[in-house]
Amino acid sequence: MKRNTKINLLLLIAVAALAVLPLAFGLGDHKKEPFTGSDGEAETAITELKPDYEPWFSPLYEPPSGEIESALFSLQAALGAGVLAYYFGLRRGRRQGEQRALERQSGSTLAGTAGKSTAEGD
């Protein structure tokens, strides 16, 4: 495995660990409902601070169930991930195409090194 790939994998593992550790160590156990959204907790805090507060506007559309809501959230993530994947796929393809064209043009051994430099930062 290339060094670059290793670092990228390590970054992903670190992110996964940060997400899993609170669950693994049961950090939500002190709560009645563990791991609820902080947005919802803020709503609860508002009703504690000002018990008579009534939201004066309600959402135009509300997902009818938790399932529909999670489906829409997945849709959001999938759309984003799809565009990102398209971007990187396109870039990779273009780079390979350019490299091949270069190799064909020069026909020498020189071309192989051009695309392989993976300098980081500056």
């Binding site: 950090l27 939500g28 791991f35 902080s38």
Partner: peptide, 12 residues
Amino acid sequence: ALKLPSVTGSCS
């Protein structure tokens, strides 16, 4: 869209 668990026992 990624709701992740955190050390406080809630998600954000």
